[in-house]
Nucleic acid binder design. Sequence first.
RNA 1: CGGGGUGUAGCUCAGCCUGGUAGAGCAUCAGCUUUGGGAGCUGAGGGUCGCGAGUUCGAAUCCCGCCGCCCCGACCA
Length: 470
Amino acid sequence: MQWPPHDTYASAPLCPSAPAVYLDASFSRMPMRLSRYFLPVMRDTPAEAQIVSHRLMLRAGMIRQQAAGIYVWLPLGLRVLKKIEQVVREEQNRAGAVEILMPTIQSADLWRESGRYEAYGAEMLRIQDRHERAMLFGPTAEEVVTDVFRAFVKSYRDLPLNLYNIQWKFRDEVRPRFGVMRGREFLMKDAYSFDLDEAGARAAYNRMFVAYLNTFARLGLKAIPMRADTGPIGGDLSHEFIILAETGESQVFCDRDLVDMAAPGDVDFYGDLQPIVDARTTLYAATDDMHDAAEFEKRVPESRRLSARGIEVGHIFYFGEKYSKPMKANVMGPDGQEKPVHMGSYGIGVSRLVGGVIEASHDEAGIIWPESIAPFDIAVVNLKAGDANADAAAEQAYAALTKAGRDPLLDDTDARPGTKFSTMDLIGAPYQLIIGPKGLEKGVVEIKTRKTGAREELSLEAALNRLSAA
RNA sequence: CGGGGUGUAGCUCAGCCUGGUAGAGCAUCAGCUUUGGGAGCUGAGGGUCGCGAGUUCGAAUCCCGCCGCCCCGACCA
């Protein structure tokens, strides 16, 4: 096939209707008009979906199941996924972690070194390449990152180091369910810290702990760190971050005071983070497998005892020399002695969070996105496409909001008003700017706040000022 | 992996028990009428009834095998 000359691409806009300024690979801003978009919403609820996030993601045209626990991400879902990914990335970077990208397909040999090739059960998807070499679709990446580390880092002077990646993983769950909340293929942020000793590792752990608080807060979630099982390693350095939702997978118990504890926000990640961590780990909080009813009642006054369902959205873990020792990831210490590096790993289920956010934020009509990750932040609804006044006002609004750096979706289709309202409520943009001929005759448009349902009539100019400023 | 379901039009489902030419609503397309919270009328298109092998004159329906998907449990980011 003959490819067009390169400058054909260079000169042609990727989408004829979209000025170059629209293009943004991070999806942080990509205004769209519905007539040119792909938004296959469904009125009926597919029978296979049981929980609300799964139902709403299917109905809103965010995903399509391709096989059990494996999904196609449709445009609307992909936008949210990318926006969550970007929030996670920014907070990892802020906490000093450095992004890499590791392969999805890994060599079995690495896993034999750590001993996990045999230890990992049927959840690991084992595959063979054409040379009959044993490969696998990575369920996690400790081995790969340890291999990277040992190849390049030899001295304590290069520590601390935290490498993370955001990559698709595969775990061949016996029973995938809850849509993307427990798929087999899932997008995960996994970070790996490397330190000279346990004290250094604890500081690394605290940085991720705080980064997680900030990350989930930016996603509009109240995430509570709960002590998790540390397994054979022991110690107190493992926490699951749990969001509360009625459909949560596990029962959790905690002190109510933890629920509304504010995120730390701007902190010095290389200062002392221990007080921040302590403030959130001294109060009682446990998942059912770690729960101690007697201790719960002893430590938490009855009025503050909270028993609820929770969804795990993050997990941080210190595991010391578990991988560095068998894989010989050693560093030279200041004392001239070579020793295995101390490691920790820190996961966030990025694709799971899409479902998790919906579980935590929806109503009968559909999804209610937090502004930070909404696929579109403003839905501009032209109630009567084809009406000259409505068209002009809607186009003006769309252009102004785009220019103001917002991320609007313009519904310029000729569907009926009721259909438009239902669709926009379903896909959950935080604000709807409703423009119709009747309002324009009176000189007003309407702003509807999705979360509260509050509507306000005001002039187009005032509406644009308000929505541009946010 | 144990237990229980289910598979019929894009979606939700009826028909299966008791075998006899494939159905409804929504969606799609055309036309007309409508137009501020999922419109109405008329017409049209759309299905190897999951796959395979049986029984039978005849199978969506009965028998056997396989596969997919869902739910409960165990397991899990």
